[in-house]
């Protein structure tokens, strides 16, 4: 079992040195991932398109997960523009969104963040589209490192549903009773946030 964990670590989790919004140095694997249940997304603080939606969604997820965050579940947002996302800029961004403890924003050397983005699969095979950072701002990874359980969901999904997905990582062997079988009339259409994948200009 430890061999498998070790091979997952080698494949996905380089032990890079990163910097938090509190200007604290941390190691990606040893401090952030090892032995933990986590959520992972990528953002940049000047992003005006989707990041604020995803971040405010995650704020609601943090509320829904309650005091598990910071104890059982750790939330991480990694910068797509580490040069401009200084610890100070990230701290302002976090405060602006009402982020509470247990959720860490991370920056570092551009090449390190780029490696992390690729290792964690925030990519697209069309190399032109891959250069547009906004194409990597949507998804959220969730996982339980010691159990080697990893999934992902859209950051723009309903916060209730995202929180439920994270709960599977906390209690993977528990019964989650079937969802509603007979529906009320479907909800009114939700606001649409359209941003097609496109190559960088």
């Amino acid at each position: 079992m430890t061999d498998l964990r070790e091979s997952a670590r080698r494949r996905y989790f380089p032990d890079l040195t990163l910097r938090t919004q509190d200007d604290k140095e941390v190691r990606f694997y040893d401090d952030l991932i090892k032995g933990k249940i986590v959520t992972i997304n990528f953002f940049y603080s000047k992003c005006e398109d989707v990041c604020p939606i995803v971040t405010s969604n995650l704020v609601k997820v943090q509320e829904l997960l309650g005091d598990q965050v910071g104890r059982k579940v750790f939330m991480y947002s990694f910068s797509l523009k580490p040069k401009e996302d200084t610890p100070k800029a990230m701290k302002e961004y976090a405060e602006m969104h009402g982020v509470r403890p247990g959720w860490t924003f991370l920056t570092g050397k551009p090449e390190d963040l780029e490696l992390l983005r690729r290792k964690l699969g925030f990519t697209t095979p069309d190399l032109r589209a891959d250069k547009d950072v906004t194409n990597h701002t949507g998804n959220i990874r969730y996982g339980n490192e010691p159990f080697m359980l990893w999934g992902a969901c859209p950051g723009m999904a309903d916060p209730q549903w995202i929180a439920e997905s994270v709960e599977w990582m906390v209690r993977p062997d528990a019964v989650h009773l079937p969802h509603e079988h007979t529906p009320a009339h479907p909800d009114a259409p939700r606001p649409e946030h359209r941003h097609h994948e496109r190559p960088a200009a």
Partner: peptide, 19 residues
């Protein structure tokens, strides 16, 4: 579609609580 990396149908996503 694919919206900011998220696979979608009519701009929405899978959700067991939503028809």
């Amino acid at each position: 579609d694919r919206l900011n990396g998220q696979w979608s149908i009519n701009g929405q996503f899978m959700d067991c609580n939503h028809f």
